[in-house]
Write a protein that binds this DNA or RNA. Structure first.
Lengths: 205, 205, 205, 205
DNA sequence: TCCTAAGCGAGACGGTACGTCCAGTCTTCGT
DNA sequence: ACGAAGACTGGACGTACCGTCTCGCTTAGGA
């Protein structure tokens, strides 16, 4: 996520300090928890990390890219459920979603990042590859397993199915204020199965 | 949307100037178009409107509520299509959505407002009643017409169906970057019909 | 002027590069001419010289000492006039002064160094021995020649006479903005002769 | 010294706070005394005065003009001695000079301002009218009284005489490090009398 | 016709954060 | 142990807005 992915031949001069890097990301996370995402300032992060502001700007151009990298540290990989049925797998995944949306810090954080994505292609890219891609990969795996098992239609559009299942929560969470909970998760799974389930006579239902 | 809707009980003192009100809203809209939503500042709006800053703060507490009112001026009511079929009506509505998302100013604007909603309940309320409610009402009308015609299931959960159809575009637009266009609209309508259409043997198809 | 004047006693390790030394001093002079004395930074000098900042600090503690050494390179020795009369000699010397003050870079340069002298005894010492001493020596020579010739009083206080002649230009140049030119030089010489000339009946005029 | 000399018709908007003005100047003076002239920063002045930085920059573009105005507050008018003789008057004035140079804060302060004069015509102007002019006016008065009394030459060049008397101290103080004291003052007065005194046969001596 | 109250534009107020710059030091590599 | 390169902490810079606060002036209704 940093601009130097190394592997390239050593650059001259003093190398960037990993300690500083860690201190900054930790400070960022701590501050987000304490004062909330958009009260966090580069100034405060630097101070908390015991680091000059220039050191921040040398590595991240905006607060958001920094935050995204920081979140990468505490974000676990998304566990892909394997319950034996598409219904179970999808439900498992939706429960993960419910859990993520449930964190009280999430709202300001997510919406702040969404706003930042609209301003900066770099941030958009970081968010899409850093977060969304993980989620979509998990969904893809579940869906493909479902088609392989014959529970879901063979001609299934994975992207569409992913959005149909994921979009409603995202929309409720950020806009309409509708429920993002276990019952809703169940309902959405049933919708998905009706829309993308294999026609009768095959294994589902 | 302003706090004083009173024509009742005349208050003492000089009344608020409608000219100033108009000038401010016009300035806000113009600035959003010119420099983008989040580069707009109260300072600039006041200057552009030829108005003191206090005049702004007397009427709106935050930039967002001002903007929401300003948008109310240029936002048309959502036309509820009546094509004779649920498929046609839904598709008509989705085309409206495609059109709204298509405005190049929309991205920063919408995401900025979404972020503001997370910070301020007042803004959230304004957005939900000012924008989202219009959309949901249109959806409700279309969906109820569908059930009345027997095309859609009688036990349909209108809120759920609305979110299943609307959520994916919202999600693609603000997060994943997926397509928000006519073909996608068609695909989503088909998904909705499969998920919420009346069981075979009834009037749909 | 540098702390290592040693050609004596070979030290271990890589010897200091004379090329670097030259490059630095040249860069310093060039930058002073281009952007003016106090816009010059150690950073810029190092960059221009193609040298690490540490290399500068290894040799000079402050910008000023570096500059003083750099100036030593381009500063000619002060030519002591020998016209045969105290009046002529003094006038010759004052013309040198007029010439030095005439260089457009001199003002910021001199005043900057004067300010630095007040901060740092080291700089003060460098300036006094590097510049002022040369001037005073020239004055002394001229004055002593004058007393030897009987043109000037025998009991003359050389320091006082030097300051009476030199001070007014310095004062005008840095503070009052009065003229520093040939006529003023002439006037000052006449003052000096009246004040320090031998009493009537002796050799002066 | 501020850009608004009033008398002009009232400007619109909230007037500038005199309290803030005073607080700033006091803070500046206090800081100069405490940490020395060139360690004083706009930041520190603002903090000490309990004032926003913008309030400083709204009134003074550079630290130096602020300082000059601040000094104006504590600088007494120069008392013009009237002892009955040119010798006494000049000596009185020189004693004032010795006193001013004697203040331990003066060196960094004066040299800093001299450097600032070279950078900025505004500062140069402020210094010349604010400080130097007072001194020169006092000198002029003394000198003219001397000529009126017949002690000094009628054709006396006041500017030249002023610089001959004042320059040496200025030069010693900022450059050569020579003595600036009572004996030197006496010596300079004698020089002035020899150079500018009326020829023998008139009242002096 | 005045009085009171709230509006108005203008702009200064105390603050906070911005992103940049430089000082002076430190750490890496290669010579 | 030198060299360059470029990282480091620290702190001031000058700017931009924030939301609040005076100013003097205007515009109404009620006394």
């Amino acid at each position: 996520m940093t601009e130097t992915d190394s592997t390239a031949g050593r650059r001259p001069g003093r190398p960037r300090s990993e300690e500083a890097h860690d201190a900054i990301l930790s400070a960022a996370i701590a501050l987000i928890r304490e004062v909330g995402y958009d009260a966090v300032t580069m100034e405060a992060i630097a101070a908390r990390a015991g680091v000059g502001k220039a050191t921040l700007y040398r590595r991240w151009k905006e607060k958001e890219t920094l935050v995204i990298e920081a979140l990468g540290r505490i974000l676990h990989a998304i566990p892909v459920p394997d319950t034996g049925s598409a219904r179970g797998d999808l439900l498992g995944l939706m429960r993960v979603a419910v859990g993520m949306y449930g964190d009280p810090a999430s709202h300001v954080l997510l919406s702040g990042l969404v706003a930042a994505m609209a301003r900066s292609p770099a941030i958009a890219h970081a968010m899409r590859t850093g977060f969304d891609a993980r989620w979509r990969a998990a969904m893809r795996q579940v869906l493909e397993r479902g088609t392989a098992r014959g529970e879901l239609r063979a001609e299934l559009d994975v992207e569409l199915a992913t959005d149909v299942v994921s979009g409603p929560f995202f929309y409720r969470y950020l806009m309409s204020g509708g429920p993002v909970d276990e019952p809703s998760a169940r309902a959405l799974v049933e919708v998905a199965l009706r829309a993308f389930g294999a026609p009768a006579g095959t294994s589902d239902r």
